[in-house]
């Protein structure tokens, strides 16, 4: 069991490294262009595309957990800053789970995960009235298949600009 969990965590970490580094690259580029001159083809400020490029549109969780992982905190911190830079943005935080749990419990777990980020953002000064949470339980996987990799990618909060 512990061995399997280790594998899951390792797979998740790997996936994350790959995911984050690519996002950070694009994020950094966009960030630079924004501070200097308006990019001719950059995303509209405060748009979903801008969020995805500049912050990342999701964070990941450990199996059956809803606390924000240390390696995910950076994304949520960036999200808090981004929301302050874009004060008109209304954000929905969608909580999701992998398929390795039962439906009703996963609805509750997804709600917990969405709420974890909401509370974190509010603690960092984001007005709660701009935030909304929804849980999709195990109903909205992002990555297809029934593999440890897919499950690690599907245990996530997704950030959606309303």
């Amino acid at each position: 069991m512990s061995l399997k969990l280790l594998t899951i965590v390792a797979a998740a970490a790997l996936a994350l490294t790959a995911c984050e580094s690519s996002q950070q690259n694009t994020g950094a580029t966009t960030g630079t262009t924004q501070t200097t001159t308006a990019a001719p083809s950059g995303p509209v400020a405060g748009s979903q595309e801008a969020l995805t490029q500049q912050v990342g549109d999701r964070i990941f969780f450990d199996f059956d957990k809803s606390d924000i992982r240390a390696d995910q905190r950076g994304t949520v911190d960036k999200l808090a800053a981004w929301l302050k830079q874009n004060p008109s943005v209304q954000l929905t935080i969608e909580g999701n789970c992998d398929e390795r749990g039962t439906r009703e419990y996963n609805l509750a777990l997804g709600e917990r995960r969405a709420n974890a980020v909401q509370e974190y953002l509010v603690a960092r000064g984001v007005n709660a009235s701009r935030l909304k949470t929804i849980s999709y339980g195990k109903e909205r996987p992002a990555v297809l298949g029934s593999t440890e990799y897919a499950w690690a990618q599907n245990r996530r909060d997704q950030f959606v600009v309303r």
Partner: peptide, 9 residues
């Protein structure tokens, strides 16, 4: 039924 409030069901 269950109701979730502030992350708690």
């Amino acid at each position: 039924f269950s109701m979730a409030r502030a992350g708690n069901s």
